[in-house]
Simulated scan of single mutants.
Amino acid sequence: MAFDIKPLARAEELVVRDMDDEVLVYDLASDEAITLNLFAGTVWRACDGTRDVAGLMDKLHQDMPGDLVTEAAVWQALDMLSRCDLLQQRVMAPANRDRRTLVKALGIGAVAVPIVAMISVPTAAQAASCACVNPGGCITQTACPSTVNCNPSGVCAP
């Protein structure tokens, strides 16, 4: 049953940094940077594989002020975390809680709306601008005329 799920946050191949009220997660496997707002980050960190949704809500009530935590907000956060591949297994809301119903349940002015933003990071070859710092720095820059030398101005030179 969907209510018996106990989500587990993915930890492998991730670099995680706390930044004020956000959590920045860099996925080394997909070269994507993911930003979690305070609510989504708190949900993600609470996903330890031992808590079901009710347990997550209890934990979040301890960690977050006031009445920000709702079941709909937790399901929405789990859906977003799943879509960003930040959970070990995909989490699906119960059949009576489809995505549209969850968004309606959150309400227009909800404060605890989980926000997850994903940015694809270009590979070194895609980001190549023919600039180098050290001799040999052009090796990964396939668009440069040389992959060996940097000239004195810091440009890959023939």
Rank of each mutant, 00 (worst) to 15 (best):
D27P: 05
N37I: 04
M118V: 11
V15R: 12
T42W: 06
E71S: 05
Q89G: 07
V43S: 03
A112N: 13
L78H: 11
T50I: 02
G49K: 03
A143L: 07
Q88C: 04
A105Y: 07
T142D: 13
A11D: 15
I139H: 07
A105K: 07
M19H: 09
T140L: 09
P135I: 06
A93P: 11
P65Q: 09
W44M: 01
T35G: 13
N37S: 09
L87C: 04
T142W: 13
D79I: 11
H61L: 10
A54S: 06
G55V: 01
A93R: 08
L81V: 02
D52M: 08
T123Q: 04
C132Y: 11
L38N: 11
Q76Y: 13
V16P: 02
P145D: 02
T35L: 15
M92I: 05
S129I: 02
R90W: 12
D67K: 10
A128K: 10
V43D: 02
D79Q: 10
C132D: 11
A105F: 10
D98S: 13
L28W: 14
L68Y: 11
A73K: 13
K6E: 07
E32S: 06
G154P: 05
Q126V: 00
M92P: 02
A125I: 00
L56G: 02
F39C: 04
K104M: 15
V43P: 06
L60D: 10
R83P: 08
I34L: 08
L81D: 08
A11L: 13
L60V: 12
A125Q: 09
R99G: 05
E71C: 03
Q126E: 15
S129Q: 09
V155T: 08
G66R: 07
N151D: 14
P145R: 08
A128L: 05
D48L: 00
A117Q: 14
D58S: 14
Y26D: 00
G109S: 08
D21N: 06
L87D: 03
A95R: 13
R100I: 13
C130T: 03
D63R: 04
P94F: 14
G55M: 06
I119E: 15
S129E: 05
A143Y: 04
V53P: 12
V103Q: 15
V116K: 06
A131N: 05
V15D: 10
P152D: 13
F3V: 14
V121S: 06
V69T: 10
A95D: 12
D85H: 15
R51F: 01
D18F: 00
C156Y: 01
A2E: 10
C144E: 04
C130H: 06
A127W: 07
S120A: 12
A73T: 08
A93D: 04
F39L: 03
G107I: 02
V113W: 00
D4M: 08
L78K: 11
D63H: 03
